Amino acid sequence: MLTKGKTGLVVIDVQGKLSTVVHDSERFVANLVTLIKAAKLLDMPIFWLEQNPEKLGKTVPELQEVLGSVTPISKFSFSACGEPAFVEAVKKTKVKTWLLSGIETHICVYQTTLGLLDLGYEVELVSDCVSSRALSNKVLALEKLARKGAEITCLEMCLFELIGDCRADEFRSALSLIK
């Protein structure tokens, strides 16, 4: 069960043209906007990654807007855990479980998940906030990562797990995000 205060969010490589050609791109980006807003509402640590931004382009404007003051971490390895600045930042938090989102599920999200699991973290992939160009690649990656110890969740499931109670201060604001 996800716990507020011990859960963080990682947003991986939602950049340039690639973000427009992944499966169901409009819904994927809209869900990711909602997830980021929810993470901010719950005061969760957020890490934002960009793969070789000089070549692949910047993060899509919709996400840049909601990420606001969060500073992106550039990376060149497919796994964010290959970037020392990311690993150092992750270790400085009190987070036990990382929600992973972004693209592509079968490449950078996949390898980052394995890296975080190797570092001893729990990982939950937000299934409606990850995507790949081919749906079959996304499905394969989620199935394989589940066998390797990652959990699979969805936007609403993780949000309501983190809130836990309809009397929580954040409940009404969170509810407005998903309606």
Rank of each mutant, 00 (worst) to 15 (best):
T3S: 14
T3Q: 14
T3I: 13
G8R: 00
V14C: 09
L18T: 11
S19M: 09
V22Y: 01
D24K: 11
D24E: 15
D24S: 12
E26P: 02
R27N: 15
F28W: 06
A30P: 04
N31Y: 04
V33T: 10
V33F: 03
T34L: 12
L35E: 08
K37H: 09
K37N: 12
K37V: 01
M44R: 06
W48L: 13
Q51G: 03
N52Y: 13
P53N: 08
P53K: 04
G57A: 09
T59S: 15
V70G: 07
I73D: 07
S74T: 14
S74I: 01
F76S: 12
F78C: 06
S79G: 03
A80P: 05
C81Q: 01
C81A: 07
C81H: 00
E83K: 00
A85K: 14
E88R: 13
E88I: 10
A89D: 09
K91V: 09
T93D: 12
K96M: 05
K96D: 15
W98H: 07
L99P: 00
S101E: 07
Y110S: 09
L119I: 06
L119G: 08
E122A: 11
E122K: 13
E122D: 15
V123E: 06
E124A: 14
V126R: 02
V130C: 11
S131N: 11
N137V: 01
K138L: 08
K138C: 06
L140G: 06
A141T: 04
L145R: 04
R147Y: 08
K148I: 05
E151M: 13
E151H: 14
I152H: 01
T153Q: 08
T153P: 05
M157V: 12
E161D: 15
E161S: 08
L162C: 01
D169A: 15
E170S: 13
A174W: 00
L175F: 09
K179P: 01
